[in-house]
Design a binder for these strands. Structure first.
Lengths: 191, 191
DNA sequence: ACCTGAACACCGTTCAAGT
DNA sequence: ACCTGAACACCGTTCAAGT
């Protein structure tokens, strides 16, 4: 039973999707691979690093090939792809958002947003603030949504809809706020 | 050494602020109060509940009395107060954001945003989506900011500024997106 | 009402040693 | 290169029993 790093990350995603983040422990993952927990440290520096690799793999698997041309459509595409990728695995939003917060992974969406917004002609400061604001929205909304989709049990969480159209409305709202700050406001405004 | 629930929550905040969330354990808190860990369960159902109470107390302590009148100024006031309250204690943003995500506490800011936006004359659907979008921004931004302010160590986190003016720009951006959806757009637009 | 003592069922991580 | 076995230093929570 000799494994490689790839096996460890793949199996971690399986455990995550099957049993959830709380049950994704190094001991559990070792057992699942038929190996002592200590063996995992041959492939991965620590649990945090493993989770960052899991986050990156989740994003890689959710990757869609081409991007639309206009900056705002590109921004939408990045945000939508990010949400869909996270929703595809149990607790995916928490894993990806946490990895991003620790600065240990999940960096691609930020970079792509920066690219798209730069193409849009925004000043650098605004590009960075807008990119982070968009990510805060997508991470926050999707975590909420996934908690809602899964649980149904846990407890006193209010029961408002967090669905596709709610995501689109929230995103449109942030996007409009960004659009207002275009150097030449009418250039990228669609009819 | 007889304690009440209030003592437990107060001491939990002290431990949080002094040693951080990772070191706020039931065993550590018991030791700090000169009591066995099991004694805490006489005052609090479990750790999750305790953290929700901590979150609520952090918000209560950051409470400022009066609110400005126009809906958009009220929204800004709620968001700013929320950020300031969370920044006042180590790991405050994580604690409050998590409690809110679990629906076990920190409900006041959402309710206040709903009130302010309803006064602004927005439709109910938009009010709820806008309130949640604002909270996602404030929680996300403040968590980032606090991680940045504290750490300096941890690791490969990028080093862009997340300061007051960055918060204000991000908030203004979301707020403008909301403003665009006013039933009578010019009514609440300031000169 | 509040607390002790002991237990249960776990964690992440390290490290010498094996193949 | 990859893994075992054993240990270290912890967790949250329960529960009978004490005052």
């Amino acid at each position: 039973m000799r494994h490689h790093r790839e096996d460890v990350v793949d199996r971690a995603i399986t455990v995550l999707d099957t049993y959830g983040l709380a049950d994704l422990t190094m001991r559990r993952l070792g057992a699942e691979l038929g190996v002592q927990p200590s063996a995992l440290y041959h492939h991965v520096a620590n649990k945090q690093t493993l989770l960052a690799a899991v986050a990156d793999e989740i994003l890689a698997r959710g990757r869609r090939a081409s991007r639309p041309a206009p900056w705002d459509e590109r921004v939408r595409a990045v945000c939508t792809e990010l949400r869909d990728a996270m929703l595809a695995y149990r607790d995916g939003a928490d894993v990806v958002a946490t990895a991003h917060a620790f600065g240990l992974g999940a960096a691609a969406p930020y970079d792509e947003l920066v690219d798209a917004l730069t193409d849009g002609g925004f000043a650098d400061d605004l590009v960075r603030t807008a990119a982070r604001t968009l990510l805060h929205f997508v991470f926050g909304h999707t975590s909420d949504e996934q908690t809602h989709l899964q649980a149904g049990s846990v407890g006193a969480i209010d029961d408002q809809p967090r669905d596709d159209s709610d995501f689109e409305l929230g995103l449109a709202l942030v996007l409009d706020g960004i659009r207002l700050r275009l150097p030449s406001p009418d250039a990228s405004r669609r009819p």
